[in-house]
């Protein structure tokens, strides 16, 4: 991975469309953006994006009132297993917008702000798969992985302990509210909550 100092000029140099230059400027404010995508599968090469949710985090507050929630229109028939997981049928997606339009809205929303997520690298790889042809480069936003923060917190006192990084375990440990899963908005909200719990200083690693 490139050092961030180098990544920014490199990405700008590669950028095809100058109107996206703001993505590679320093962030406009101190906000962070919690991000989650729902996809048709876990294989980046073949999976499609079904929906995207992004929520800004400002200081200790999650700005759910200014969220971005995008449903992507899809033409290919939806795989049955995916429907069962996400409760998004082809007919639901029919009301969505084109992926290209969704990506434009997403880019405008996140700008150069750091991103927060659970298993964020997957979401970023998914997004970049579609952004690269468009921009000539992928996103270089700082990525804050909540499972990493969680791992650090858990191993801070006991470096060699095994840490269950599943979201269920993390969520239980951090005493997050129970929200219906596999809804990108809820997942982004939970990631934001986990982030604030882990960085607030108020949370203590439970014993055991």
């Amino acid at each position: 991975m490139l050092p961030r100092a180098l990544a920014r000029p490199l990405a700008r140099w590669r950028l095809k469309e100058p109107r996206f230059a703001y993505l590679f400027e320093p962030p406009p404010d101190d906000d962070l953006v919690s991000l989650d995508c729902e996809t048709t599968g876990l294989d980046v090469a073949s999976a499609e994006i079904l929906s995207i949710a992004a929520i800004k985090i400002r200081a200790r507050r999650i700005l759910t009132s200014q969220r971005l929630s995008l449903l992507i229109r899809r033409s290919a028939p939806t795989h049955r297993a995916t429907v069962l997981v996400h409760h998004l049928r082809a007919v639901d997606s029919a009301g969505g917008i084109e992926l290209d339009e969704a990506l434009e809205q997403l880019l405008a929303f996140i700008g150069a702000r750091p991103l927060v997520g659970y298993y964020l690298s997957f979401d970023l790889r998914m997004l970049n798969k579609f952004l690269r042809p468009k921009l000539g480069t992928g996103l270089i936003n700082r990525a804050i992985e909540v499972s990493e923060l969680y791992y650090d917190a858990k191993t801070h006192r006991l470096p060699d302990r095994h840490v269950d990084l599943s979201f269920a375990s993390l969520s239980r440990d951090l005493d997050l509210p129970e929200l219906p899963a596999h809804d990108p908005f809820n997942d982004a909200l939970l990631a934001a909550m986990a982030y604030l719990r882990l960085t607030g200083g108020g949370w203590r690693v439970p014993d055991g």
């Binding site: 200790r60 507050r61 009132s65 909200l189 604030l196 719990r197 607030g200 200083g201």
Partner: peptide, 11 residues
């Protein structure tokens, strides 16, 4: 619900 934010406050 659409106008709600979520906030954290420490002990």
């Amino acid at each position: 619900a659409a106008c709600l934010d979520v906030a954290f406050f420490q002990k």
